[in-house]
Computed example of a mutant assay.
Amino acid sequence: MEKWTYIILAILAVYILISAMLFFFQDYFLFKPEKLSKDFQFYYDNQEIEEYNVETRDGATINGLRFKSKEPKGVVFYLKGNSKSIKGWGKFAVDFTRHGYDVIMVDYRGFGKSTGRRTQKAIKRDMQVVYNKIKEKVAEKYIILYGRSMGSGFAAKLASMNNPRMLILDAPYYSLSKVAKKYIPFMPLSLLIKFPMPTYKWLKYVNCPIHIIHGTDDRLIPYKTSVKLSKIRPELTKLYTVIGGGHKDLNNFESYHEMLEKIVTSRPNKVNLEGSSIHVKHSSKRANAKA
């Protein structure tokens, strides 16, 4: 009996140790930041940029870039993924400036030149501060929120608290807790995870058009995730499928750029369903058939 007691205690000790490691080191698993020196100079071919810093109430600095178009139709606030810095992510701004939109891109705390202790609450607050700065110069009806992977959660949260023209989610997750549970299903993640990022909860309160883009071969965040998310506000949501697209390569597909152009250049129009088959019901009965 003592042998089994020791085995159970050993298993329990290992379980507690793994739980503690997940709690204290999850930041290193979730985020892969690239840090830049304060004097680093950003440069992009054929792109006009302006660098700025936003000071937060707790003393942190959020560094960002504005990519300028010649005659801007509006602004895309681009919330990037969980790796690198805007040094590398900036190359994607051209997908919007070519359509006449300025792009605002920032580094989260601890990324690039941005400083401050990184928590979910702090990042949400930082993104709202940046959004407020944009609102000072641009009416919300001209602001597009674009969230890529990790950034999709923060973009959904911003859209739920504001009134942008539209929300675009690129390879979004249902919640980070759900993603983590896929890999470590035996851990009490509801108690351990510091960045649960419940995108599905925030989408319930979004009132602008929602466009979701996802690749069918995404192995990190499965395509079915976006199918589930699209059902939360179906009356506002359109799902765009990139056949064969993975998690990091959607920009290599012509179909992705066709979808993006359609999204950002079109105006939402109410479809006239009068005279359509929307309420026609199929029946297996032959009540109306002629004898």
Rank of each mutant, 00 (worst) to 15 (best):
I193W: 08
E48N: 02
S37G: 15
K181T: 12
L239R: 03
K281Y: 15
D95C: 07
G153L: 12
P222L: 02
L169V: 03
H282Y: 15
I144M: 10
A171E: 14
L220S: 14
K224L: 05
E51L: 03
H211D: 11
T225I: 03
P268M: 14
K178E: 15
K178L: 04
D126G: 09
E140H: 00
L158S: 07
V138Y: 01
G116C: 07
K201F: 01
M161I: 05
P198F: 04
M21K: 03
D249L: 01
N269E: 15
V129C: 09
L176M: 15
I8Q: 04
K181W: 07
V179Y: 11
K87Q: 10
S266L: 10
A159S: 08
I104G: 05
N163G: 07
E235A: 13
V264H: 05
P72V: 01
I123R: 05
Y101D: 10
S114R: 00
K194C: 04
R165W: 03
P268Q: 13
R125D: 13
T61R: 13
R219Q: 11
F253C: 07
K178C: 03
M21N: 08
F67H: 03
P198V: 12
M166A: 14
A289T: 07
K238E: 14
Y173E: 11
M105L: 14
M150A: 05
N272Y: 05
K121C: 03
R117N: 08
G74W: 00
I104Y: 06
K35W: 00
Y240M: 09
G275F: 07
K137A: 12
K124I: 02
Y256R: 01
V271M: 08
K238T: 15
Q47E: 14
S175W: 09
D170W: 02
L158F: 03
T115K: 03
K137F: 02
C208E: 13
F40W: 06
N163C: 06
S276N: 09
Q41T: 11
V271A: 09
K262Q: 12
F24E: 13
I143K: 00
G64E: 05
A171G: 13
R98I: 12
K181Y: 10
Y240E: 12
A155C: 00
V179E: 15
G246M: 08
Y131M: 10
N53P: 02
S276P: 14
K248Y: 11
T237A: 06
D217S: 13
Y43Q: 15
